[in-house]
Design a protein around this nucleic acid. Sequence first.
DNA 1: CTTGACCTTCTAGTTACTGGAAGGCTCAAA
DNA 2: TTTGAGCCTTCCAGTAACTAGAAGGTCAAG
Lengths: 127, 127
Amino acid sequence: MNIGDVAERSGLPAKTIRYYEDIGLIRPHRSANGYRCFVESDLHKLAFLARARALGFSIEDCRTLVGLYEDESRASADVKDLAQQHLRKIDAKISDLEAMRNTLSELVECCAGDDRPDCPILRGLAT
Amino acid sequence: MNIGDVAERSGLPAKTIRYYEDIGLIRPHRSANGYRCFVESDLHKLAFLARARALGFSIEDCRTLVGLYEDESRASADVKDLAQQHLRKIDAKISDLEAMRNTLSELVECCAGDDRPDCPILRGLAT
DNA sequence: CTTGACCTTCTAGTTACTGGAAGGCTCAAA
DNA sequence: TTTGAGCCTTCCAGTAACTAGAAGGTCAAG
């Protein structure tokens, strides 16, 4: 398979796949013409990476997850720990965003939104 | 005021204040010795920026907001539009994060988290 | 033999800072 | 008067995870 095929089948842009090779997440073989030559297991790994990234895991977390995935003697506790840490980060981000949303939506609701200059949003920011 | 004073009073690191000058958000005067020399209005603007950033507005949004703030003939509708757009982005981010959290916490709950290799989290990612 | 769709590498840009190096200024103590 | 601490300055590089674009090689079809 060439990069275009795995891009389509994994849902990852070709650029991203090349980047993942650059940083050592995958190691596809090369054909005689220099093209990357992917086998099924490369595709499988890329799909794994795509899903882990979609769940918000960082690239370094993904590297660890792939390592655990390929380690037949892993302890599921290690995977769970990583996932729980990530879950806590997600929760923290959600809290931050909700705090922002609450403050901002209060200000927005107070704003007439007409052609006059008086604006509670700006007043709130300037306070 | 020197940069250390405004840093303390605005809550922004000195590095960040220098950066804001670099990108043209503020234009403090200089003393004879080359030190930046801040007046109250600079401090006020920095505090405004700090609050806008804390609400998640991008630097470019902040630039626009400062412009509106300083424009006595602004229409509050312009401010409100900007804020509402930002609110929608925040809501979208929260939705994304909640989707991640839901999927991930389901997987986490299914995982024994012991020393055995069998792991529903990895299976979920590999599917 | 050319055309178009692939593929390659390389450089640089994105966001909003942050860390660190190398060096100048200021003020108080010895 | 010198010295030292603690400010300040600029400039360069690094962060995360790509993404855009340029310049050029390869391949299959017509």
